[in-house]
Computed example of a mutant assay.
Amino acid sequence: MTAGGVSLRPVTGEDLDLFETAFTGEEGTGAFQWFGFTSALRMRRRHAEDGLLGPDGGVLSVVAGRDTVGRVEWFRSTWGRMDTSFCWTVAIGLVPGARGRGFGTQAQRQLARYLFDHTRAQRVQAWTDVRNLAEQRALEKAGFTREGVLRAAQWRGGRWHDQVLFSILRDEEGS
């Protein structure tokens, strides 16, 4: 998938090396995505098993030109029974040098399109910290609608943080 100079593709071993290096600490993840140190072994094991592409979610690399600049992820969420009311929740992580260049907007737009094209989901959603104005703008530019604030929904950095919930529906994608 390619649009606006950005493409999504399956994760390679080299991408995993980049993710481990770039997203190891707060300086790489950014303050809104730093949840502490975690092992990279789980992601490497899953990559060996299914290429990080499964029925309940996945990870794709974000590529600008020839450079991997980050990753997008999705996982099943529900607003009722999983068999009738599931949706996808999406997330993105860009390496520091790739932020603020429109790559996130393009990647999130492409991911929503991909999920609508290849799954039966009616809804794709994302959330971000209420102070993360850059990500809120990127989601809106990607076609997502701001729905509201989830109070004290995310534990990070020793305290609870409010999140802003966004979504895009199947019939809104591409409009």
Rank of each mutant, 00 (worst) to 15 (best):
E27N: 09
R137Y: 00
N132Q: 09
G54N: 09
W155T: 03
Q108I: 13
G51E: 06
R113G: 15
R131E: 15
S175R: 14
L53W: 06
S167H: 14
T119Q: 02
R42M: 05
D67I: 03
V90Y: 02
I168E: 03
D15N: 12
T38V: 15
E14V: 12
E20V: 14
K141V: 04
T145F: 07
Q122I: 05
G70K: 03
T145I: 11
R71P: 00
H47M: 02
K141E: 06
G30D: 14
Q106W: 05
D171W: 09
A126G: 07
G158V: 11
W34E: 11
V69N: 08
V69A: 14
P96D: 05
R101W: 07
G28T: 13
L94N: 06
G143I: 04
R170S: 06
A107Q: 08
V124H: 10
R113Y: 01
L60V: 08
D50S: 09
V164Q: 10
D15T: 14
R137G: 00
A152L: 09
Q33V: 00
G100H: 13
E140G: 10
R99F: 08
W160P: 00
W127V: 08
L18I: 14
P55T: 10
Q33K: 01
L111M: 04
D129T: 14
T128L: 14
I92A: 13
A126T: 07
R101H: 15
G36L: 07
R120S: 15
D83L: 13
D67W: 00
E49C: 00
F32Y: 15
V72Y: 04
R42Q: 11
T78W: 00
L41N: 10
I168Q: 08
P55Y: 01
Q154R: 10
V95L: 10
G28N: 02
Q106N: 01
W88F: 15
G5V: 01
L16G: 09
F35I: 03
D17H: 04
L52V: 01
V124T: 03
P10D: 04
V124I: 15
A91D: 15
G13Y: 01
R146P: 00
L169H: 08
